[in-house]
Lab assay of single mutants.
Amino acid sequence: KQVQVGDEKYTFDTPEEARKFAEKVAKEKNLKVTEKNGNFHVE
């Protein structure tokens, strides 16, 4: 599963790991997490 933050992409083995990372980054940057096709976008 992938997490996209701006132009950066991070790959994780499980959706749970990806979601945790996305939520942590979103909180730090005051952004929101959206899920698209099983991948997460922080925007």
Rank of each mutant, 00 (worst) to 15 (best):
V42M: 06
V3F: 02
G38T: 03
T11F: 15
K32E: 08
G6I: 06
F40V: 04
Q4T: 14
F12D: 00
E43N: 09
D13G: 10
T14Y: 05
K24H: 10
V3E: 01
K9G: 05
T34I: 14
N30S: 08
V5W: 10
E23L: 08
E17Q: 09
P15A: 14
Q4K: 07
F12L: 02
K32I: 14
K24Y: 09
N39A: 14
L31I: 05
D7T: 12
K1E: 04
V33W: 07
E35K: 08
F12G: 00
K27Y: 11
F40A: 03
V42P: 04
E43F: 12
A22I: 04
T34P: 03
D7I: 10
F21D: 01
Q4D: 06
N39I: 15
D7S: 12
T34R: 07
E23R: 03
H41T: 13
H41Y: 15
V25A: 06
E35V: 15
E16G: 06
K24N: 09
E16I: 05
V3M: 01
K29V: 06
F12M: 01
E23G: 04
K36G: 04
L31M: 15
A18R: 00
K29T: 10
K20N: 11
P15F: 13
V33Y: 07
E28P: 04
K9R: 13
K27F: 12
E17P: 00
H41A: 08
E35F: 14
R19W: 09
R19K: 11
G38P: 02
F12C: 04
A18F: 00
K32G: 07
N39Y: 13
E17D: 10
E8G: 05
G6M: 08
A26F: 02
F21K: 01
T11S: 11
K20E: 13
H41I: 15
A22F: 04
N39M: 15
K36T: 09
V3Y: 02
Y10E: 01
V3A: 02
V33P: 03
D13V: 07
V42D: 03
A26V: 03
V25H: 05
K1F: 15
K36S: 10
K20M: 12
T14A: 05
A22K: 01
K32P: 07
V33R: 02
F12A: 01
Q2W: 15
V42S: 03
K29C: 13
K20D: 12
Q2L: 14
D13Y: 07
F21A: 02
G38V: 01
E28G: 06
E43Q: 11
Y10I: 04
A22Q: 00
E28A: 07
A26Q: 03
G6K: 04
K29A: 11
L31H: 07
D7R: 10
E23S: 05
K36E: 09
A26E: 04
N39C: 13
E28Y: 05
K9N: 10
G38C: 02
A18L: 01
D13H: 08
V33S: 02
G38Q: 04
N30V: 04
K1V: 15
E17V: 03
E23I: 09
K20C: 08
E16D: 11
P15C: 09
A18T: 01
P15W: 14
R19H: 06
K36L: 12
G6V: 05
T14M: 04
E28Q: 07
P15T: 14
N30A: 07
D13F: 07
F40C: 00
K20A: 14
L31A: 12
T34C: 05
P15M: 14
V25K: 06
N37M: 06
N37D: 14
V5P: 01
Y10T: 02
E23T: 07
F21N: 01
V33G: 02
